[in-house]
Write a protein that binds this DNA or RNA. Structure first.
Lengths: 330, 330
DNA sequence: TTGAAAGCGGTACCAT
DNA sequence: ATGGTACCGCTTTCAA
């Protein structure tokens, strides 16, 4: 199946190859007559330019690579939307690669994106394999690490302190008079680890004992339900439960309902992320609002400046912060 | 910033360029001594092959393009996971492009993917612009349409009948003695339209009046809550509410709780998709289970056969069906 | 096992 | 405004 090439179009339109190329990229540099002939030929043949050839000749790919650990979590959808909304209108394509919470898959993704000669790489998180770090550092391309803060950024770093956010939320519960506060989580990925550290820090500051309940697995509503059941198997109900995220918190709320446990009277429940449903649950969910969408936008704006301006991305750290949103659940 | 090329590696390793290429792709065809020298040079220089050049020379891209309308809906995460799990081990890269529920953006995505010379295109849905259809038909590449069934498939078609599923769920409510049944939805995308048609069909069959409440927007928990509030502004509570999906259903359940409306005693609530949380809500949610993950796997298996086997994708229609899951809510 | 040369499909550069 | 030519970085012959 012979593919339609620039030369095929040129032959049909009876012009040179370069003229076809110009019609497609700078139509105003070509006379109207030839332009029409070329466009007609393009239509007729169903010609679509080969981006690999274009990239090889021009060394432009118009492509930004974005590595995320999962697509199961709405927070990444928010974040990708923010990136998308700025990059696409600027003529840059967003290529999403899923690393499935594996540093090795992340390394593979980095190789792929460098191999594709992406014009920038945006990666969620700050922990990478040594080789991935080395490749990114050498790649001479703009690199952005997001959603956490790091002391040794590879380039730009936009996010917030997961640990401070968790510590702050825990301190608030303590200030509200709750003493026995449990921390519920699923898998211990980087961000979960940072939040757990924040919880432990706040508990230690107040001289309180930790209660950490973990069942490995992606965070989910079902997981929240299971975590509460697990805890109640061999312990009394705590005064508060701080959940790794809102999905888990929703599961806890459902399980409380099933067991006739009153929230917040019997137990306070706090989530993380302020997903869209948090405000309209009954009771509404107290949580930590994070700025995923803004993160995407800020990153994208910096990248557009750097890529289209042809300047290097200035290394910097941008802390977008977080906010504790107090609602009915605790 | 001069990029490291195959020739740079060859020079450092003191071999020819083609030998470096062989070491990277067919290591067993090269003597151990040279192989070691080459690998050392690759490491030292941080060489990453240019995929555009490779593609141009070999006409293989190892890339499958997948177009989805949104990343906000977990059903697409399930579906992508199924695709991922088969394609990646087979050495094929999954490139996800978001069309944001726009046929024009879908057409742009098709152009991009054809331009990238993806080895196959998988698109969610069966409605496309005329040009997108034409380009796909001409592209000579395997094309798969998913998650719905169509009479005129472009190639392979894997999914289920959204309309039948919705009609079936509605009939079940009717059979349970419910008469005044409302249908709640957000935006009227293709799949929403098909489900609405199923609801109307079942209501018409039974000679019942329709009550359709719509507020444009992505489906969400908040939307479900708003839809019930809207309905109750100028109508009595119906006997049942069939929601466009489980998120909306969850919103309805929360709003019911807030208003002290008992489910299923006062009103039955039915969702769509059987998302992970449906089973552990209280009351648990009756819904229509759909097979997103299996869809992804089946599609991927067929593609692997076609691409690696070098055979054309046999046009066919695969109906994966659906299942009504009766739980406490209705 | 190894290498030289041609060429994949475009674009940059320089003429005309 | 238009075209000729070299070349982007790699792989595919084909020969040695």
């Amino acid at each position: 199946m012979p593919r339609v090439t620039l030369n095929d179009v040129a032959r049909v339109a009876n012009v040179s190859a370069i003229t076809v190329s110009r019609v497609l990229r700078h139509p105003d540099q070509v006379s109207e007559e030839k332009r029409k002939r070329v466009m007609a030929a393009v239509q007729k043949l169903g010609y679509v330019p080969d981006l690999a050839a274009s990239r090889l000749a021009s060394s432009r790919t118009h492509m930004v690579g974005v590595i995320v650990p999962t697509l199961y979590n709405v927070i990444f959808a928010d974040y990708l939307l923010g990136l998308h909304e700025i990059l696409v209108p600027a003529g840059l394509q967003v290529v999403v690669v899923n690393s499935r919470y594996s540093q090795d898959e992340e390394e593979a993704a980095v190789k792929t994106l460098i191999g594709q000669r992406a014009e920038a790489i945006v990666v969620a998180g700050i922990h990478h394999t040594a080789l991935a770090r080395r490749l990114l550092a050498r790649s001479h391309m703009p690199v952005v690490e997001t959603l956490e803060l790091t002391d040794r950024p590879l380039g730009l770093n936009v996010g917030f302190s997961q640990q401070s956010a968790a510590a702050e939320a825990t301190r608030r519960l303590i200030a509200g008079g709750r003493r026995r506060i449990a921390f519920f989580l699923g898998q211990l990925d980087d961000r979960a680890m940072a939040r757990q550290a924040g919880y432990r820090q706040a508990m230690a500051e107040a001289g309180l004992d930790e209660t950490i309940v973990q069942i490995t697995g992606l965070s989910s509503v079902r997981l929240g339900s299971a975590l509460l059941s697990r805890l109640l198997e061999d312990a009394a109900l705590p005064e508060a439960i701080f959940c790794i995220d809102d999905n888990v918190a929703l599961g806890v709320l459902q399980e409380c309902r099933k067991r006739q446990i009153r929230v917040p009277d019997d137990v306070a429940v706090v989530g993380f992320h302020d997903l869209e449903f948090a405000a309209c649950l009954s009771p509404s969910l107290t949580t930590v609002a994070t700025r995923r969408y803004e993160t995407g936008r800020v990153v994208a704006e910096k990248l557009v400046d750097a890529i289209l301006g042809g300047t290097a991305l200035k290394p910097a750290q941008i802390d977008l912060g977080f906010e504790i949103v107090a609602r009915e659940s605790g």
